[in-house]
Amino acid sequence: MDPFERVPLGRTGVTVTRLGMGLAPIGGLYSAVGDDCAMAAIDTAWQHGVRFFDTAPLYGSGLSERRSGAALGKRDRAAFTLSTKVGRRLAPGTENQAGIWAEPGKSVPVWDFSTAGVRESHRESLERLGLDRVDVLHLHDPDDHYTAAVTEALPTLVELRREGTIGAVSAGMNQSAMLTEFARTGHFDCFLLAGRYSLLDQSGLADLLPECHRRGISVIVGGVYNSGVLADPRPGASYDYRPAPPEVIARAQAMARLCDRYGVPLRAAALQFPLGHPAVAAVLVGMRSPEEAADAAAMAQVPIPGGLWRDLVSAWLLDPEVPVA
C-alpha cells in the first residue's frame, strides 16, 4: 500500500494521502518547537510525499494554524488537503491550557458549537492560516456538547459544504460511540478517530468502523502510537496522554518482540495497522521536527508480512475480528 497514494474521503471530491501529518506538535505540545523547526518539519513531510495536514485552533491557541499556514501557503493550494476544527473558539486570555502547551499566546479556547460560533471560528481559522479555504472541517471533541453539535454545529457545516466553503463534513473525537451516532445522521463524509483503532485499542471495531464501511464514510485514524507507548514501549512512556500502566507497557513490549521476529519496527506496525481496515482512508501522525517527519515516512513504507498480523492475533494481542492479510 502506497502511503502517499491519494484516496477520496467518502463520496466527496476531497482526497488525502494515506499518511497525513498531525499538526498539534508544532503548536508546542508539551515542549517548545519554534517557527523554524515547525516549518522544517512540514517541509520535510512534503518532500517525502505527505499532502494531508490536520490542525485546529486548540493547538497552541492558534499557533499551529499560523505556522502551518505560513509553511503551506507557499505551496500550490490544489496540491494539498488541509483540515481544521470547530467547537473551540479563541478568546483573549493568557492562562496555560492544563500545562500541555509550551508556547502560550494571548488567547485561550472557549467551547462554542453554536451556529454563529462555528461560522466565526471557521472565519478566524482562515485568517490565521492565511488561506481562502480548508478542505475538511471537523467538530472537535463534542463529547459534552452533543445537543448543540447536532442541532446547531452540524447543520452549519452542511451549509458550509453546500456553499462550497468546505469540501467535507467531519467530527474528530477520542471515542467511537458518539461518532457512530453521528454516522447514522447521514450528513457526515468522514471522521477522525483518535486512539481507538490502534494496536493497543481496537474498540472502534465494535461500532464505528463497520457502520462507516456500510455507509461509505471514510475514517481517518489518529493516535496510532497511543501518545508514545507504541513508538517506544519503555517504563515511563505515555498512553492516552497519561503515564502508561505496567500492563500496557508489557503488552506493547510483547508486540515489539513479535515484530522483531519479522524484522519490523513496532512503530511501522503501529502506523500501518489501521490502514488494513477497508473503512480507513488515512492515518495521522504527529510530527514536530524534520527527524520525526522523515521517520514517519520511513515507517509508512516498511514492508509488513501478513504473518505478523496473524501472529499478533494468535497471541491474543489483537482482536480476532481485525482484518488481516
Results as ranks from 00 to 15, higher is better:
Tyr239Arg: 14
Leu193Ser: 14
Ala148Ile: 03
Arg242Thr: 14
Pro155Gly: 10
Ser218Pro: 04
Asp240Trp: 03
Met173Phe: 12
Asp240Ser: 11
Tyr146Trp: 15
Phe188Lys: 00
Gly195Lys: 12
Asp207Phe: 00
Pro142Ser: 14
Glu181Met: 07
Phe182Pro: 11
Asp240Glu: 15
Pro210Asn: 06
Ser198Cys: 06
Pro142Gln: 10
Pro210Ile: 06
Glu181Arg: 15
Asn226Trp: 03
Leu199Ala: 10
Ala148Ser: 12
Leu193Thr: 14
Val136Met: 05
Ala171Pro: 03
His140Lys: 01
Glu247His: 12
Phe191Met: 03
Tyr146Lys: 15
Asn174Ala: 04
Arg162Pro: 01
Tyr197Met: 11
Gly204Ser: 02
Gly164Asn: 10
Ala237Pro: 07
Val221Gln: 03
Phe191Thr: 11
Gly228Lys: 01
Met178Arg: 14
Pro243Ser: 12
Leu137Pro: 12
Val221Gly: 00
Arg215Trp: 03
Gly164Trp: 04
Ser203Met: 07
Met178Asn: 06
Arg196Ser: 13
Val219Leu: 01
Arg215Met: 04
Gln202Met: 12
Gly167Lys: 08
Leu192Asn: 05
Asn174Glu: 11
Gln175Thr: 14
Asp135Phe: 02
Ile166Phe: 11
Gly204Met: 01
Ala168His: 12
Val150Lys: 12
Glu181Asp: 14
Ala171Gly: 04
Arg251Gly: 06
Asp232Val: 00
Thr165Ile: 12
Val219Thr: 06
His145Ala: 11
Ile166Lys: 13
Ser238Leu: 15
